[in-house]
Amino acid sequence: MAQQQQRQGFTLEYPQHLAFFDQYADAQRAVDYLSDQKFPVENIMIVGTDLKQVERVTGRMTWGKAAGYGAATGAWFGLLLGLIVGIFAEPGDWLPIVLSAILFGLVFGVIWGLIGYAFTGGRRDFTSVTQVVATRYELLVEHKLLADGQRVLAGLHNPAVQGSAAQSPQAPQAAPQTPEAQQPPPQAPPAQPGA
């Protein structure tokens, strides 16, 4: 049974829409509330929808930064390679092998970073980080638990929604008619000829 659940991964048998949220924290709060009410939350999924890619520009790319990023990457690669080769070396040769691998990786990384930056031709003179984010979050629940989930989730108190529902304007009622208001307005006397 456990293996079957692992194979299913992120799927539900017959998922049904339970609620939409604009923020992930609100969706998380709703699931937490359902859990507090002893609802079987293992039958719920939070699905991010309306995905968009966000690229945050972190700074300007220069020759110095390109060399620095290349040096850091090369040094890490050299360290990894030096440690692997150092495992098979004599005990006294281990440190010189690791240090020389770091040095070679650093030099190679600087050269490679500068070549890569030169090939951009100035078309991308900035650094950035990219992330895919959702703009809306949907709660899905197994079809057999949909009614229970809606009932329990309706108990989640949201003062802003309750306040606006309590203060919703009603249709204006007509003022009661008084006897004076029911009579037609007085008409002007007919005009006299020659006046």
Results as ranks from 00 to 15, higher is better:
Ala2Trp: 07
Ala2Thr: 08
Gln5Trp: 12
Gln6Lys: 14
Arg7Trp: 12
Phe10Gln: 14
Thr11His: 15
Leu12Gly: 05
Tyr14Lys: 15
Tyr14Ser: 12
Pro15Ser: 09
Pro15Tyr: 04
Gln16Thr: 10
His17Ile: 01
His17Leu: 13
Leu18Trp: 04
Phe20Arg: 10
Phe21Ile: 05
Phe21Tyr: 15
Asp22Tyr: 06
Tyr24Ile: 12
Asp26His: 11
Ala27Tyr: 02
Ala27Lys: 03
Arg29Leu: 12
Ala30Pro: 07
Val31Gly: 01
Val31Phe: 02
Val31Glu: 10
Leu34Tyr: 04
Asp36Ile: 01
Asp36Asn: 10
Gln37Asp: 10
Phe39Tyr: 14
Pro40Trp: 03
Val41Phe: 00
Val41Met: 02
Glu42Trp: 01
Asn43Asp: 11
Ile44Asn: 02
Val47Lys: 11
Leu51Trp: 00
Leu51Phe: 07
Lys52Phe: 10
Lys52Trp: 00
Val54Asp: 02
Glu55Cys: 01
Glu55Ala: 08
Arg56Thr: 10
Val57Glu: 07
Val57Trp: 00
Thr58Val: 02
Gly59Ser: 03
Gly59Cys: 01
Arg60His: 09
Met61Arg: 13
Met61Lys: 09
Lys65Leu: 12
Lys65Asn: 02
Gly68Arg: 04
Gly68Glu: 05
Gly68Thr: 05
Tyr69Ser: 06
Tyr69His: 12
Ala71Tyr: 02
Ala72Asp: 00
Ala72Cys: 04
Gly74Asp: 07
Phe77Thr: 14
Leu80Met: 13
Gly82Asn: 05
Gly82Phe: 06
Gly86Asp: 05
Gly86Asn: 03
Ile87Thr: 11
Phe88Gly: 13
Glu90Cys: 01
Gly92Asp: 14
Asp93Val: 07
Ile97Leu: 13
Ser100Val: 13
Ser100His: 04
Ala101Ile: 02
Ile102Lys: 04
Leu103Glu: 07
Phe104Val: 15
Gly105Ile: 03
Val107Phe: 14
Val107Cys: 10
Phe108Ser: 14
Phe108Thr: 13
Val110Glu: 03
Ile111Pro: 01
Trp112Met: 07
Gly113Trp: 01
Gly113Cys: 01
Leu114Asn: 00
Ile115Glu: 04
Gly116Phe: 01
Tyr117Arg: 08
Phe119Ile: 12
Phe119Lys: 14
Thr120Asn: 11
Thr120Glu: 13
Gly121His: 04
Gly122Thr: 00
Gly122Lys: 06
Arg123Val: 07
Arg124Trp: 00
Arg124Asn: 09
Ser128Tyr: 11
Ser128Gly: 06
Ser128Asn: 05
Gln131Phe: 04
Val133Ser: 09
Ala134Gly: 08
Thr135Gly: 14
Arg136Ile: 01
Arg136Gln: 14
Tyr137Glu: 05
Glu138Leu: 11
Leu139Asn: 05
Leu139Pro: 03
Leu140Phe: 06
Leu140Gln: 15
Val141Ile: 09
Lys144Tyr: 07
Ala147Gln: 15
Gly149Tyr: 03
Arg151Phe: 08
Arg151Thr: 12
Ala154Pro: 00
Ala154Leu: 10
Asn158His: 10
Asn158Val: 14
Asn158Tyr: 07
Val161Ser: 08
Gln162His: 10
Ala166Ser: 13
Ser168Cys: 04
Ser168Tyr: 10
Pro169Lys: 09
Pro172His: 05
Gln173Gly: 11
Gln177Gly: 01
Thr178Glu: 11
Pro179Val: 11
Gln182Arg: 14
Gln183Leu: 15
Gln183His: 06
Pro185Gly: 07
Pro186Met: 09
Pro186Arg: 06
Gln192Pro: 15
Pro193Lys: 04
